[in-house]
Design a protein around this nucleic acid. Structure first.
Length: 774
DNA sequence: GCAAGGTC
């Protein structure tokens, strides 16, 4: 029996479609990646009995990236990214092993039916699936068609069955338009991002410039927020005047009337109208009207509308979102809300005033969406033209026009949708500009641009406004649509568009000083920021510590910048100096419960030995005799990672810690010891360095009056008690196979050079770790 | 370290 492989865009769709087509009789199992399932059933295809295998991918199988060597920011000129730098397709999510999964399931299949979403991205994924699967499928005989595309617009029995009955072919042009989009986004986004990041990085001390990204969706998104900011800034409030009248309709009831002129901006004119009306004792009814009106039930909910609603009345609560979606659905099939709008027009002297009220006739959909209901209002008096009511009062109010507020997320979503920014990715772009420090989310989910966001957008306006205008995306989209429709050649469109942006890029690079001028206004140059922290080894002057990311030390005398480890605190390390370059050491710490190590600012940026890399602290330094180095403080091989060494943290007392210099393993040991030293002697069993510990006299855990003890942290029975190694002895690799299975890295002659993996590691490292320290 | 687009 022949086999038909069918592939949907996501696991839930594969299941729904398989259930419909098999009429519920199917057997399912999880695929090798654990994420996708395979649903099997038998049926007929092309007039023969077949076995169906319905499965799915998880979105795109592949992603586009530059070849590895073009991802080195300091080696590649961003201008090269427009054409020279070759790209390659990589698996979008290596953990999912999607290509292998598809090949395992596709091997030996005879036909393939593509059930990917019916949009351009889906069409592109069709070809990603075919690239993976066609080579392992059975070959067609005599030119028989084996590749089919199902086109459907809803997951209903009729739609799915119709699609299956009228299979077509995947559309290569649509897929190509997505290939072009991917390449444009990658080349343009990365080139601009790398250039502006590198240009502004390290120039200003109070600018978080770890990443200044640019993208055809995120930059216009930021543009919308800054545009509103500019409107607020340039807003000049104006004073205006309003007349307000009250008429008494009953003994103890009065009606508030709105002035038909609404407002005037000239005080004297307003005063004149007031004078003409305030002496009047009666208001005469000019006209009345009653109109039946309808408030329309909502249209069917789509993703963007849901995002908008979720951002403005709902929280992040899944249940409330579910409730909203169901209520919205019921509302779409309910009746409109019907109400009566009554209006009474009054004349007081020469001036006209109006009041209106609404009375609900039938609530319709507002019953299921009560927040949409027409508010209850006091009913208007029944009257007719010519009736008069006594005037209660007429007064003049002074008011001011007020600026618009910052954009709400809901308004931003509307703007993005209007300019064709893909709906599913809208929250991603908003999140992007928040994470990049371009905007902050204020109360009411309003987006307020930061100084950085404002300077960037104003800079683009100054140099090339098209870079920030929303048309940047829609114009490119237009070109891409020509590819999709087969009206334009993929290569030509790609080449032409890249050429346009390459020119824009070069112009931007040449004009960057224009943006820099704006930066100078908002940010302080490096030399003027930061606080003095540690001394430079070259000039022996204090360097300044700049805390803003990327945190770094700056020597204004030598005009040198030294990067530091991120995401932790930095302080001076007892004014100790590096024996190699005389720089004062600093101490990095990830917090009191984490780990810490000293580092030399110079060595951290300029590794002193061949076996060291940039970004290494003293705990990875192979200096043979410096008291802070790995050689002097290393104890033995890490129990968890391949290449790490457990190093004594010399600053951790009195609650001493030993931490791995590569991974996050931290071991707590020897409370109440006032000194812990790493001895030159090594353990005769495991070759780890021995620790020499002096305990506090009053709190010494040692037998008798002893305060000092030297031993192996892994093997010594006294120390095992103190680091709770009680049963570790039997789990520790040293104790499993006798002397023949010795390992660990002590400081003795048998030590392996750092970084070299141990060839005989215990298999279950996690259980060993748990036995020691947890 | 970068884009945007799928989806987990």
């Amino acid at each position: 029996m022949k086999t038909v492989l069918m592939v949907a865009e996501k696991p839930s769709l594969a299941q729904s479609i398989a259930k419909i087509l098999s009429r519920g009789s199917l057997s399912s199992h999880k695929g090798l990646n654990g994420a996708c399932s395979v649903h099997e059933y038998t049926g007929t295809f092309a007039g023969q009995p077949v076995r169906f295998k319905m499965t799915s991918v998880c979105g795109h199988v592949m992603t586009l990236d530059f070849l590895g060597k073009y991802n080195k920011w300091d080696k590649v000129d961003p201008a090269e990214l427009f054409s020279q730098a070759p790209t390659e397709k990589k698996e979008a999510n290596p953990k999912l092993n999607m290509v292998k999964f598809l090949q395992v399931e596709g091997r030996g299949c005879d036909y393939i039916v593509l059930w990917l979403d019916c949009d351009k991205e889906g069409e592109n994924i069709c070809f990603e699936v075919l690239d993976a699967v066609l080579p392992v499928m059975n070959k067609a005989h005599g030119g028989e068609k084996t590749v089919f595309r199902a086109r459907f617009s809803s997951i209903t029995d009729t739609d799915i069955c119709n699609a299956m009955a009228r299979l077509g072919e995947p559309d290569h042009n649509e897929a190509l338009s997505v290939d072009a989009r991917q390449e444009l986004d990658l080349r343009i986004g990365c080139a601009f991002t790398r250039f502006q990041t590198k240009y502004f990085q390290g120039k200003y001390g109070d600018l978080d410039s770890s990443l200044i990204s640019f993208g055809p969706c995120q930059t216009p998104t930021l543009g919308f927020c800054v545009e509103r900011h500019d409107k607020i800034q340039s807003f000049k409030p104006e004073t205006y005047w309003v007349l307000q009248a009250k008429v008494n309709t009953d003994k103890d009831r009065s009606l508030l009337l709105d002035w038909d002129r609404v407002r005037v901006f000239d005080r004297e004119i307003a005063q004149m109208f007031l004078n003409m009306t305030k002496l009047e004792k009666e208001a005469q009814v000019e006209a009345t009207s009653r109109k039946e009106k309808a408030k329309q039930r909502p249209l069917a909910l789509n993703t963007v509308e849901m995002l908008r609603v979720a951002s403005s009345s709902l929280g992040g609560d899944a249940w409330r979102l579910y409730e909203y979606i169901t209520r919205h659905f019921i509302a779409t099939v309910s009746h409109d809300c019907k109400y009566l709008q009554s209006t009474i027009s009054f004349r007081i002297g020469p001036e006209l005033f109006t009041c209106s009220g609404k009375t609900v006739l039938s609530p319709g959909f507002t019953e299921i969406m009560p927040w949409q209901s027409v508010p209850l209002e006091e009913s208007l008096p029944t009257c007719q033209r010519g009736d008069t009511f006594p005037v209660g009062e007429v007064k003049m109010l002074e008011k001011q026009t007020s600026p618009p507020d910052y954009l709400t997320e809901a308004e931003l979503i509307t703007l993005m949708e209007k300019h064709g920014i893909a709906d599913a990715s809208i929250p991603v772009h908003i999140n992007n500009i928040c994470q990049r420090n371009y905007v902050t989310v204020e109360s009411g989910r309003r987006l307020k641009p930061t100084n950085l966001g404002i300077v960037l957008v104003h800079g683009y306006y100054k140099i090339d406004a098209e870079l920030v205008l929303p048309t940047i995306r829609s114009a490119v989209e237009k070109q891409l649509n020509l590819i999709a429709q087969g009206k334009a050649d993929y290569r030509q469109v790609l080449g032409h568009t890249l050429d346009v942006f390459k020119r824009k890029f070069h112009y931007f690079v040449d004009s960057i000083a224009g943006m820099d001028e704006l930066m100078e206004v908002s940010f302080s140059p490096l030399a003027a920021t930061g606080k003095p922290l540690s001394r430079c080894g070259k000039c022996h002057r204090f360097m300044k510590y700049i805390q803003a990311k990327p945190s770094r030390l700056h020597c204004s005398h030598c005009d040198e910048t030294y990067t530091l480890p991120q995401n932790g605190t930095i302080k001076l390390y007892k004014e100790l100096r590096c024996p190699l370059d005389d720089f004062e050491l600093v101490l990095w710490s990830s917090g009191s419960r984490g780990k810490s190590y000293p580092l030399c600012p110079y060595c951290y940026n300029h590794p002193p030995f061949r076996d060291m890399k940039k970004g290494m602290g003293c705990n990875e330094c192979t200096h043979p005799s410096c008291q802070h180095s790995l050689s002097m403080l290393g104890i033995g091989q890490c129990v968890e990672c391949e290449s790490g060494v457990l190093v004594l943290d010399p600053t951790s007392g009195p609650k001493w810690k030993v931490a791995c210099n590569k991974c996050s393993v931290v071991a707590h040991c020897f409370e109440n010891a006032h000194r812990v030293r790493v001895s030159a002697d090594t353990c005769s069993v495991c070759e780890a360095a021995l620790l020499d510990v002096d305990f506090n006299k009053a709190k010494s855990p040692l037998p008798g009056d002893e305060t000092q003890h030297m031993g192996c942290v892994f093997c010594d029975p006294v120390f095992q008690e103190l680091v709770e190694l009680k049963h570790a002895a039997s789990c520790h690799p040293m104790h499993r196979g006798g002397p023949g299975r010795r390992q660990g890295r002590g400081r003795g002659r048998a030590r392996r050079p750092p970084g070299k993996p141990n060839p005989r590691r215990p298999k279950d490292k996690m259980s060993a770790l748990a036995a020691y320290f947890v």
